[in-house]
Amino acid sequence: MLATMLIYIFGALAIFSGLMMILYRNPIHSALWFGLVLFSLAGIYALMQAHFLALIQILVYVGAITVLIVYVIALLNFDQRDLVGKVTILKGIAVIVAAILFIELLFYVGGLYVKGIAPPPEFGKAANIGLATLTRYLFPFEVISILLLVAVVGGVYIAKKD
C-alpha cells in the first residue's frame, strides 16, 4: 500500500516537473526540472523492483545527461532574445493535436487491464539483469555498444572547430 502511494507521489512529481520543464522560459531552469523528472522516475523504478535500473537512471540520466545539458547551456551562453517565444497559430494547432493524441491514448490505456504476477525477490538485481543482457540480449547489447562508440566519435567530430 505504501509502495502504491509512493508511486503516485513520484508520478505526480514527475508530471508536475515535466510541465514546468516545458513551461519555463530559461533552459537552465528547464534542465533542473528535467533532472527532477528523471529523479522521480528513478524512484518509481526502485519501487517496481528495478533497483539496478533506478541507480543507472540516476547515474546516467541525472548525473551525466542533465549535467551535460546544463554544461552546454552555460557554455553557449546565448542572449535573452533567443528565449522569447512567439505564440503562433501553428503552436495552437500543435497543442490541439497533442490533446487529441492524449485522449486517444487514454482511451486505449484505460481499456487495458494488467493483472501482473509477483516476480521473485532477486528480480531486478544487478546479477539478474547482467545475466539477461549478456546471454539472451547479447546482440542488441553489442550493437548498442557500437552505436555508443560511433556517437562518441561523431559528437567529437561535429563539435570540433572547423
Binding site: A64, I65, P140
Partner: peptide
C-alpha cells in the same frame, strides 16, 4: 529492464551527438 537499460544508453548517445 534490459531494453530500458539499452534505451538509456541510446539516450546518452543521442545527447552526446545532439549537444
Amino acid at each position: 529492464q534490459v531494453i530500458a537499460l539499452l534505451s538509456i544508453t541510446l539516450a546518452a548517445a543521442e545527447v552526446g551527438v545532439g549537444l
